[in-house]
C-alpha cells in the first residue's frame, strides 16, 4: 500500500515536470508570436473600423483621425439605445463637418437592428450601414449593403427632405421603397434613421459644443 503510494508520488513528480516543460515551451512560443503580431493586429483592427466609418462618411468630409475622435453618447430613446453608445466626429481642418452615430432599430422582424448613421453638420444623412441584425435570411436581410443597394437610398435625406409624412416606406405612403412581403424590416430602419436625425437636430448644439471642446483637448 505504502509502496504503491510512493510509486504514484514518484510518477506524479515525473509527469508534472514533463507537462511543466511543455507548458513553458508552448507559452514561450505564444508570447513570442504575440509580441511580434501585436502591433500589426492593432493596425488591422483600426483599419477595419475606419473602413466601416468611411462607408457612411464621404472621404471629402474629413481629414482628422476619426478613430481618435470617438466619444460616448448617453442612451436615448430616439437612438433606440439603452446603453451608452459611440459617436465619431469628422473634421476638415478645424471645422466639424459631420458626426457618425450608433443607433438601434428595436422593432425589426426579429429583434434589434444595429445601425451606423453618418449625419452631416447640416443635418443631411451621409450614409447608413447595418452592423448587426437577425432578420429572416432572404426576406428581411436586403437592408445589408452586401445583399442589396437598398440602404443607399438614405444618403442625402434629411428631416425636411423628404418631409415628415413621407418618412415612411412606399407601402405606407412614404418615399422609401420596400420589397413585397417584407415591410417590417425596412419600416424599422426608416424609423430608426428618422429618429437619429431628430436626435441630432435636438442635441446638435450640445453635441458639437462638447465635441469641439474635447477636440481641442486632443489637438496638439
Amino acid at each position: 500500500m505504502i509502496r504503491q503510494a510512493r510509486a504514484a508520488a514518484r510518477n506524479a513528480l515525473r509527469t508534472g515536470v514533463i507537462l511543466f516543460v511543455f507548458a513553458l515551451v508552448a507559452t514561450a512560443l505564444l508570447v513570442f508570436t504575440f509580441s511580434r503580431t501585436e502591433s500589426t493586429i492593432e493596425r488591422s483592427e483600426q483599419a477595419e473600423k475606419l473602413t466601416l466609418l468611411g462607408q457612411v462618411l464621404p472621404p471629402a468630409l474629413y481629414d482628422n483621425d476619426l478613430l481618435a475622435s470617438q466619444q460616448g453618447v448617453a442612451p436615448h430613446e430616439l437612438l433606440g439605445t439603452r446603453q451608452p453608445s459611440a459617436m465619431w466626429i469628422a473634421r476638415r481642418g478645424e471645422a466639424i463637418t459631420a458626426v457618425v452615430l450608433e443607433a438601434i432599430a428595436p422593432d425589426g422582424y426579429s429583434g434589434n437592428i444595429h445601425l451606423l448613421i453618418g449625419i452631416g453638420i447640416d443635418g443631411t444623412v451621409t450614409g447608413v450601414r447595418v452592423t448587426a441584425h437577425r432578420e429572416t435570411p432572404g426576406l428581411g436581410d436586403y437592408i445589408v449593403r452586401s445583399k442589396s443597394l437598398w440602404i443607399e437610398q438614405f444618403a442625402g435625406t434629411s428631416l425636411t427632405r423628404p418631409e415628415a409624412r413621407r418618412w415612411k416606406v412606399a407601402k405606407d405612403g412614404g418615399q422609401f421603397d420596400a420589397r413585397a412581403g417584407a415591410t417590417i424590416t425596412p419600416r424599422a430602419v426608416v424609423k430608426a434613421v428618422h429618429g437619429a436625425l431628430h436626435y441630432f437636430a435636438r442635441n446638435r448644439a450640445a453635441l458639437l459644443a462638447e465635441k469641439a471642446a474635447s477636440g481641442e483637448e486632443t489637438a496638439p
Binding site: F22, A23, T27, L30, T33, T37, T40, E45, E48
Partner: peptide, 19 residues
C-alpha cells in the same frame, strides 16, 4: 497543449495579416 499553442499562433498570424 501543443495544438492549442499552434492554433493560437495561427489565429494571431491570420488576425495580423489577413484580417
Amino acid at each position: 497543449l501543443i495544438i492549442a499553442a499552434l492554433v493560437t499562433v495561427i489565429d494571431l498570424l491570420m488576425n495580423a495579416f489577413v484580417h
